[in-house]
Amino acid sequence: MSQLKAARYHESLTSALTQAQAHRSSRRAALRTSLVATGGAAIVLTGPSVFGFRSAMAQDFAGPVDVLNYALTLEHLEATFYREFNDEFSAMDIESAGFGSNVRGRLESIEAHEAEHVDVLVTVIDSLGGTPVTEAMYNFGVTDVDSYIATAQVLENLGTGAYTGAAQFLIDEDDLLTAALTIHGVEARHASYLNVLNGDSPFPEAFETALTPAEVLAAAGPLIVSEMPDTGTGAGTDAPGLGTYAALGALGLGAAAVVARTRESRTREEAVAVRA
């Protein structure tokens, strides 16, 4: 992969996150002022934001199955990612790259979680009479342990933002909402840990940034290079699905979230978790 492609990819993958982060200060300001300044229950009931949030766009999804397939699309991507690179990189590879001896086990744990998320989502979508999206083919552009860990960080933070943004579409489905949130919290835990591993703050802001499906699609799309031959088209709606992702992937953006990390930051987990 060329340097240019790598740079373009990195820019693409992180743009949704950084764009949202750019709203951080205004979001914080909104916390303390907008609710009061714009006043009253009416703004909460009908207005565009609480805590600086954008309002729900009900037309983003045709129904619960579409929301679940949206989640499943991301979980497939994550599950495949960890399966592939936990297989490719040995425990010794990871330690040789400067990470602590417990990191390998954590990555295996995350892999297992993502696989469980996939299994549950597939089961439920089937049960609801929908067609679960299937695993696609991906190009994560990972070339070494460093880029593996850096990409994992991006994916987990992206996933957390995606669930934060999508939960609202399940507001009329209490059980599904609760279930989705139980996944959401675990993605946030992964993100926190991977931030630490990459030398970043585990919790960079007081309120999680919600990402819209469009933002998530823009970030994850380049990783998806094609649908598998037997892949269906999801629930047959206009919700973001693999077809759209594949189209974005066809733009030719490569994949390599290589973020320079210092040896110091890589051993962060050992510094903060000496008893782990």
Partner: peptide, 11 residues
């Protein structure tokens, strides 16, 4: 939405 943005940070 607000609750969702808090719970992720708690997690």
């Amino acid at each position: 939405n607000a609750a969702g943005s808090i719970v992720a940070v708690e997690a």
